[in-house]
Design a protein around this nucleic acid. Structure first.
Lengths: 353, 353
DNA sequence: ACAAAGAGTGTGTCCGTGCACAAATATATG
DNA sequence: CATATATTTGTGCACGGACACACTCTTTGT
């Protein structure tokens, strides 16, 4: 290993003062080309890294961080992301980062538009985005790029943008996996029912459609003999949905498994439980409060989770590394997709670390 | 939030000097009872935490850390734990911690004894233990307790010791889970074959026996109709083992699933693959190189993993928190048991964070 | 009674970086 | 050429905690 050179030592080697090295390091300008080159040469040669700890204690600036995600209730997906963010901010609390949380309605593009306008007005030092609307987000990112404000994505990423970090699960893989699981549970010959939510936003969501692709890719590739039947349901009218589900199942006794490719599995599971259909396996996404309840009582067999808390945590860390430690590498991580069943559920606190 | 108070501010409030606060914080003694109480009162009131960064800068001591685990080859369980440890040490490299790795033969109590003697001789500041032998470890821990040297367990914990941290998976839950998975895959009526290794150490290992308990607990509780058949195999004689496995399966065509409760699933999976028994589901533990190969080629259906890398990482962090930041809380974490299938495998880098 | 030892307390320096400000040098202007 | 104005460069203090050391006040031993 060997100790790192300090800024002063580098300054000595380059025949300049520590202030000049500092200016080069932080691109503050006001350095003559020849001296800058000398310093850069040494920096490259020794692969200099700032001492994180000393940097932190001497930084005077207050950083403003804006987090912008869809609205959420307690115990839901976005809430978990948020608590990961909070926990990271807590860990880095010596840094005097002020964070603001702006939320928007994930079913209303206009509310997203407003939220983004608010961000631009606030002009923060960095932003964590949970994006739903492609157009709006792309446009926002354009502005941010122009202003040189770094931003990170959680949950999903919008193409044609330049985030400094992106934390998301591979959604097609999730779709494939849920199909593989249900098939494993029910046998390759039996039918699977795919319950698709009618609600406006969910179906158009980028994540949902990717999962759907993955699901059907798996079906195609494996050439499974059992068919996949689709049923659209609306959460607004539980009565009608319940009737629809039950009638499909009665008419198709070959259906042994049900997939719900978003976090609404509990809605279907409750219907099945109410009608005593215990042998039908239900698989869905996310450890929301209701889904967990159903997994515990057995009405859901398996849940897939994409480590929302870890996503939040890492996004903050990436921002800080970029902002404070001037790290250049970007953080693009495909989160693991965790498979949750009754027995391993209790241990998934989704540790931020 | 609001900023943390500094030591000097606390000193001012308590009407003492910063030195006195420092002595209280680090239990260095030489503080009169009345002043100590005053300081402690304030500390409790404001939930004081040391500023990590400043601490790191000003600490002069060199810490010696010993890691003691069973020997391992590349790409195996203990290797993953070790790389988690390395990655944590890397992250805290400003702390000048010198680490030594001592290994022992997990099938030879005497080699473990020697390793432990070596530890005591080296008299380090902290130890991370991957324990296999109960007696030896308990005795070591006794000595360490007497000397006041903190130690942390990874992989499993020995009863009757006082570690400052313990990172392990809930083994019974793992046993239950593997049984539930196989049952889900093969149906509750079909038989399951439990392949048990004959090798001396494995069977006695604490983890193994706990998994076995969990496995049979699940069988009992669910009252599954399909039987569980046991077969002992030896890795030393592949020919004989292969013959034994195949003959059992021929004689019991009702067997649709095979469980191996340690990391040797690939051994059985390879035998099945060689004999074209593709429809039998194999489930095992750990993301060792060979198991991953089998999961990819389909000869293993599912693997359970206990985040070895994370275990290693957190153990170091816990030690550092104890040693440097004088944190008092102990870190007892039951690691999540990850379920790995072909589709989610690629994303399990087992990020240390 | 006086020295020595010990307990309790405060002071000051160091760590490496950030940043404001002073100093030095270069360039422009009349 | 002198002076004003940029531009570049150097200097010094602050950040917050660790720890060595010095200082004061008691206690103990002779």
């Amino acid at each position: 290993m060997g100790r790192q050179l300090t800024i002063k030592e580098i300054a000595a080697r380059a025949g300049v003062s520590s202030g000049t090295v500092d200016r080069v390091l932080h691109n503050r300008g006001k350095v003559s080309p020849d001296k800058e080159e000398k310093v850069r040469a040494i920096l490259d040669e020794i692969d200099f890294k700032l001492n994180i700890h000393t940097s932190v204690i001497s930084i005077k600036k207050n950083y403003e961080l804006v987090i912008c995600t869809p609205e959420y209730s307690q115990g839901e997906y976005w809430g978990a992301i948020d608590s990961g963010i909070k926990s990271a901010l807590d860990e880095f609390n010596d840094l005097s980062i002020v964070s603001t949380h702006i939320t928007y309605d994930q079913f209303d593009a206009n509310s997203c538009h407003k939220a983004y306008a608010q961000i631009l007005k606030q002009n923060p030092d960095a932003i964590i985005l949970g994006p739903i609307f492609e157009q709006e987000t792309r446009s926002l990112c354009q502005d941010l790029d122009n202003r040189g404000i770094p931003y990170a994505f959680v949950d999903s990423t919008i193409e044609g943008t330049n985030p400094i970090a992106s934390l998301m699960a591979d959604q097609p893989a999730g779709g494939r996996l849920i199909c593989r699981l249900l098939e494993s549970f029910t046998g390759t010959d039996n039918e699977i029912l795919l319950c698709r939510p009618k609600q406006a936003g969910s179906e158009q969501s980028y994540n949902y459609s990717k999962r759907l692709n993955g699901f059907y890719d798996y079906v195609k590739e494996t050439g499974r003999t059992g068919k996949v039947k689709e049923l659209f349901f609306s959460m607004d009218d539980s009565e009608a949905s319940a009737q629809a589900v039950i009638s499909v199942l009665k008419q198709n006794p070959g259906i042994k498994g049900v997939a719900i490719l978003n976090s609404r599995g509990y809605f279907i599971a409750d219907i099945l439980a109410e009608h005593g259909l215990k042998d039908i396996k239900v698989a869905s996404f996310d450890l929301s409060y209701n889904n967990v309840r159903c997994l515990k009582n057995g009405s859901i067999s398996v849940l897939l989770s994409q480590r929302p808390m870890t996503q939040g945590f890492i996004s903050v860390r990436a921002i800080i590394e970029q902002l404070i430690y001037r790290k250049k590498e970007k953080t693009f991580i495909k989160m693991p997709i965790d498979i949750l069943m009754k027995d391993n559920l209790p241990f998934y606190k989704d540790l931020p670390l």
